[in-house]
Amino acid sequence: MAAAPRTPPSARSGPSAPPAQAEPRPGLRERKKLKTRTAIRRATYRLIAHQGYEATTVEQIAEAAEVSPSTVFRYFPTKEDIVLTDESDPVMLRELRARPPQEPPLESLRYVVTEAARLSLAHDREGTLHRTRLIAQVPALRARMRESTATTGRMLCEVLAERAGRDGVDLEVRVFAAAVLAALHEATVYWAEHDHQDDLPALLARTMTTLSQGLPPNPA
Rank of each mutant, 00 (worst) to 15 (best):
R146A: 14
A11V: 12
H194L: 07
P100D: 09
A55P: 01
A220C: 07
E54Q: 14
M208I: 15
S88C: 12
E30H: 13
T57E: 07
I48R: 05
T71A: 15
L171H: 03
Y75Q: 07
L181S: 10
S120C: 11
M208A: 10
A11Y: 13
R125E: 15
S88W: 05
R206G: 14
M1Y: 07
A4G: 04
P90Q: 06
A202I: 11
K33C: 11
L184W: 08
A20N: 12
R118C: 09
H130N: 14
L203V: 01
L184F: 00
R42P: 02
T188N: 11
R99G: 13
S88D: 08
T57W: 06
D170Q: 09
T56E: 01
A182L: 04
S108M: 09
V173A: 01
R94S: 15
V91I: 14
E186R: 13
Y190H: 15
D195F: 13
L160F: 03
G168T: 09
T57V: 11
I48P: 05
R97P: 06
S120W: 01
L34E: 08
A65L: 01
R29I: 15
P9R: 00
D198R: 01
Y75R: 00
P90M: 04
A55Q: 14
K79R: 11
L47H: 10
T132K: 02
P216T: 03
T207N: 06
T132M: 06
Y53E: 03
P77V: 05
T209L: 00
G127A: 07
V138S: 05
A64Q: 10
A122E: 15
M208E: 04
P77K: 14
H123N: 13
D195H: 13
P217N: 13
H185E: 14
T57L: 11
P104S: 05
L34Q: 15
S70C: 03
A205D: 12
P104Q: 03
W191R: 08
L96I: 06
A2G: 13
L109K: 04
A116Q: 02
V175G: 01
A117M: 06
T209N: 06
F76A: 00
E193T: 15
V189N: 01
R144S: 13
Q102E: 10
A177F: 07
M92A: 05
R110Y: 02
D199W: 09
F76V: 06
V83F: 09
L109F: 07
I48E: 05
G27P: 09
E162C: 07
Q51S: 11
L106K: 02
E147V: 04
R6Q: 05
E186A: 13
Q60V: 09
S120K: 04
V67L: 02
G27M: 10
E162F: 01
V72F: 04
L200K: 08
R163D: 01
G14L: 10
P24T: 05
A20K: 11
R31D: 08
